[in-house]
Amino acid sequence: MATKKSRKPTLSEKSREDELFQSLQYASLIQAALLPPSKQIFRILPSHFLIYLPKDIVSGDFYWIFKKQEWIYFAAADCTGHGVPGALMSILGITFLNEILSSKSFLLPNRILNMLREKIMKALHQTDDHDHSKDGMDISLCAFNPQTRVLHFSGANNPLYYFRNHALHIIKGDRMPIGISGNEEKSFINHEIQMRENDILYIFSDGYADQFGGPHGKKLKVNRFRDLLIKYHSKPLNEQKEALLNELIDWMKNHEQVDDILVMGFKV
């Protein structure tokens, strides 16, 4: 006897599925239009690579770049959930970041994150006195001045990695999200780093490290991801991207992708 699961979809169900698929395809076009085009990224940050692998048609991860006077702002963010909910949140995130940067003059990344959190909390009606969604995002946000090579970094649950003379340095982000959480909101911390020529820095979502695979079907984990960066960081950026992708494919084998994946690399 056929089970419900194995039942073929009826014609009307099929047409609904098609309709849904087309809607999502269209939504992915909108999302892509909001993400900075590669041409723009290359113009602002010529030495970079980007791995952006949505799990579904639309993604909860997003990258963002913004130039204001002598400062280049760039971010990698990971919104709660993936698929449609994550994508909607990512649209909020991109819109709010653009809004914040457009309205004020120079802002340190921690202030930007503080403001972004206020906007997200208001948009999602997140308060401490009634039931609210715990949705939000984790993000690494940098402001870099190419002339002085000063870099400011602030992170919400996400870190910044950089290599200097083949040594890995890790700047941890604050342990709080953009959005309401169990603890009272505090100001994000700003980290100022004087970068040097040939330093390479990486910001990323947790998708790469959380991917299941390998011989025992386990998570790749942060340590292994770090090892991969240590292994490949000295290669040219396009080769690094290829190597990281190959490693990921090897690791995944027959496993499905579990989350959106985003890794950004940038050479000073």
């Binding site: 206020e118 999602l124 997140q126 308060t127």
Partner: peptide, 18 residues
């Protein structure tokens, strides 16, 4: 006051104030 201090010490509310 920063928005965070305003909320914490003056308003005594956790709410988004953009």
């Amino acid at each position: 006051f920063s928005t965070l201090d305003f909320k914490k010490y003056i308003l005594h509310k956790r709410i988004g104030i953009p």
